Amino acid sequence: MAAFGTEFMPTMAQSHYQNGLWTRPTIVPLNTLQLHPGAHVLHYASTCFEGLKAFRHQDGSVHIFRLPANIARMQQSSRLLGMPEPDAQLLEQMIIDLLKQYLDKVPEPPGSMYIRPTHIGTEATIGKAAAPTSESLLYVLLSPVGDYFAGGAKPLRLLLETENMRCAAHMGIIKGGGNYASALPHILQAQREHKADQVLFCPGGDVQETGAANFLLIDGNEVITRSLDSSFLHGITRDSILTLAADLGMSVSERELSVEELIERAAKPHCEAALSGTAAVLTPVGTLLYKGCEIQVGTGQLGPTTERLRSALNAVQWGQSPDRHGWLTKV
């Protein structure tokens, strides 16, 4: 299978916002996207997106994981960017109608169909640097993806960045392209100078998130992660993992976590750390890089609790465990 996110189904669903209304959704060829060179998105970054997956169960049925939560977050991102808020039923219909055309293309587990709803400002204007777009386009892409860990779950090296934030503090809650672009220079520098895989942003010593995922520290029976505020993304996988951890009898602590506490706990032999996100569910963290030192997290390898939590979530997604929280939408 092609590299993650590089293969697409040949059609997409779309709806335009014009004159205060959303148009009836249509399914069009993938190559029909046309933008005026003055489109608001190209100049003022009026764009947000979501990432979610559909999974094939053993009986052949296909289920979307946490569809309402992703739609609600896209509505929030659009609203905070001053963009027209997509109608929840409209977006759900677009996703389901498009996916129904490609049910036979949904891979067997551990593969899935990655779903990418995208919202962009399309008003042709270069005079609205301080005003929102009055027109926009909502579209949905599908991309079949394989096992993220096809070569095994390689523990990551994280550089702790205490001077800079991932993005502007009031923008962190938005799943928008600008936030990822803001983190990229720090990530590239960390890769080049420290052979790091990612940057863990800890402005002022406050452990928050990496450039593309939430951070979880697992100390024995306790999962510790930063309490939610507007400065970083409210990950749906993060929320799912914390819910399942509580179901398994673990203690869940959503609170402030300092760099000092992180380093102190990471040195314990049983400690684990992981990044949570749609693509990889939970990716183990093996090494922290801080002030020229390499700090091994626990054994430096994929830990048993990280593996247990990831397996618990996969089991729900793949239909192997009961969906006790109503997370699956059957297509």
Rank of each mutant, 00 (worst) to 15 (best):
I236D: 01
E209S: 03
P185E: 00
E222C: 08
T210W: 09
E193K: 13
Q191T: 04
D229I: 02
Q189M: 12
A212R: 10
T243G: 00
Q191V: 06
T237N: 06
A183W: 06
I224Y: 00
A181N: 10
R255N: 06
E209M: 02
N221Y: 01
I241T: 09
G205E: 07
Q189G: 10
N214L: 06
L244I: 10
G211P: 11
A245F: 01
D239R: 11
Q198F: 14
C202V: 13
R255S: 04
Q198N: 15
H186G: 13
R192M: 12
A245P: 00
L248S: 03
I236M: 00
Y180A: 12
A181E: 07
K175R: 07
L184W: 14
D197R: 09
G177K: 03
I218V: 14
A183K: 04
G235A: 07
D229H: 03
L242M: 00
D197L: 07
L242Y: 03
F215S: 05
S230Y: 13
K175L: 03
E254N: 07
T237S: 08
N179E: 03
P185Y: 01
Q189R: 15
R192A: 15
L217G: 03
G177N: 06
P203N: 12
N214A: 04
Q198G: 11
D197N: 15
T225C: 03
G211A: 13
L188M: 15
K175T: 13
Q198Y: 14
I241Q: 06
A245T: 00
A245W: 02
V207S: 01
D206M: 13
K175N: 10
A213Y: 11
P185K: 02
K195A: 15
D219G: 09
A245I: 01
I218A: 02
A196Y: 14
Q208I: 08
Q208K: 14
V207L: 03
G176D: 13
L200F: 11
R255T: 11
P185N: 02
S182C: 13
S182Q: 10
S251I: 15
C202L: 07
R226M: 05
A212Q: 10
S240N: 06
S240D: 05
S230T: 14
V207Q: 02
P203Y: 04
C202P: 11
L242H: 01
R192S: 15
A196T: 13
L248R: 10
A196P: 09
F215I: 07
V199Y: 11
C202Q: 06
I224E: 01
Q198M: 09
E193L: 12
S227Q: 14
A181Y: 11
G177H: 02
R238W: 14
R255I: 06
G204T: 09
L233K: 01
F215Q: 08
L244A: 02
L233T: 02
S227N: 11
L233E: 03
A181R: 10
Y180N: 11
V223W: 05
N221W: 00
I241W: 08
S240E: 07
V199C: 12
D229C: 04
V252C: 01
F215R: 05
T210Q: 10
A190Q: 08
P185H: 04
V252Y: 00
V252H: 00
A196D: 08
A181T: 09
L233V: 01
L233R: 00
T225P: 02
